[in-house]
Write a protein that binds this DNA or RNA. Sequence first.
DNA 1: CTTTTGAGTTGAACGTGTTCAAAATCGTGT
DNA 2: ACACGATTTTGAACACGTTCAACTCAAAAG
Lengths: 229, 229
Amino acid sequence: MARRAIPKSEETRRRILAAALKVFGERGFEAATMREIAAEAGVAVGAAYYYFDAKDALVMAFYEQAQEEMAPALDAILKRSKTLEQRLHGIIGQKLEYFAPNRTLVSALTGHIDPAHPLSPFSRATAPIRDRDLGFFERAVAESQLRLPATILPFLPRLLWLYQMGLVLFWVYDRSPKQERTEMLFEKTLKMMLAAIKLAGLAPIKPLLKPLLKPAGELLRAIYDEAAC
Amino acid sequence: MARRAIPKSEETRRRILAAALKVFGERGFEAATMREIAAEAGVAVGAAYYYFDAKDALVMAFYEQAQEEMAPALDAILKRSKTLEQRLHGIIGQKLEYFAPNRTLVSALTGHIDPAHPLSPFSRATAPIRDRDLGFFERAVAESQLRLPATILPFLPRLLWLYQMGLVLFWVYDRSPKQERTEMLFEKTLKMMLAAIKLAGLAPIKPLLKPLLKPAGELLRAIYDEAAC
DNA sequence: CTTTTGAGTTGAACGTGTTCAAAATCGTGT
DNA sequence: ACACGATTTTGAACACGTTCAACTCAAAAG
């Protein structure tokens, strides 16, 4: 209720979060214990729950922090690169690189696909984070000149965001050395997407593509224009 | 270790599974308690764990049972229908219909995307179930005459299986009345898929499609031909 | 200075899924 | 009928995430 912007108790919160990340790093997310985290922070278990709703909320806090830390780099990437391919490669590559040391932590987040779960990437609770993230894809699309049907273009940022989520999901569980399978999936699917976009913008074969693009447009409108999701 | 095919203790197993399904139906999966399930079956908690490795394993048992019960119907659908569209519509529609009364139960299964988790649809432990399921899609593809590049055709059944998984995932969390959004997603995406397949088989525009189909073929080969997944 | 307030903190207690050593029961050979 | 090993069953115990009534104590109010 006080008016200070930086109450001193923020220190405690930070200490708990730092302790959590340390223990997560040592034991992994699942094996880490709230009791151990509290002990590491020199605090009682209850204190951890005073600042964080649940164990997963600690990971969410980590993600929010990551998002803030990455924002400048992503912005630079958007400004530096000129094609959509460069932009997507840059944005997604940056994220994977950033999260690489904490792969198992990220899996604790992507593990919840139920949109009803507050920590799901699709939940209403995470909408602000999602929207901020979406902004980068909107810029990536807007600042590239793309020939695409008007029924599809408006949904492209959200489709790309979804594409990125899928990629991260694959990456999180990718057991190949240095996650090279994800690397490959990324390269190939990126090529495919750009080829598809190019194809969809080609005037001469429009009638051939219609049976594909028409239901696509209808679907996107119906799925996205009701409710959040 | 004994050689009897139907040991009488099978009775206990069945009673526990039946009790579990009853309690799941009443309380939902999460709220249901192993203690309550055991009580309902007139048995100690330990007994439930003697027959089932974990709480989720009860859902897995339900799924195996469902698969067996559905097999004849799926077989009939394959025999009855003649186009790929009819086959896919039939197979997937049948499954959704069958599982409709137990939607929340299915969500307990699809909730694990980690391939390392034994109950994940992608785990090694569930490979037999997955393969049996895949068989229906293989038949659906084989018995339809399709013009598709040889680099892609062999993977089509697995792609269709994956498509079905995605659809089920959406369905499980679909909060719209009567799951009509899933219905729509199903109709539209099915149309799109068939249009895409038709397009890919069209000779005249082959060079245009090459930048799309070539990386697709390479990707599929690389992803599927190493390890299980 | 005294009292009141409420954010911050504590740790025992709860309910959960799961484990496991022991007890009960069963099947079979003698 | 008995014994004995394997199978089945028991329920107390464990570790965990989470809750919450009680406690502290600095600062605002009187």
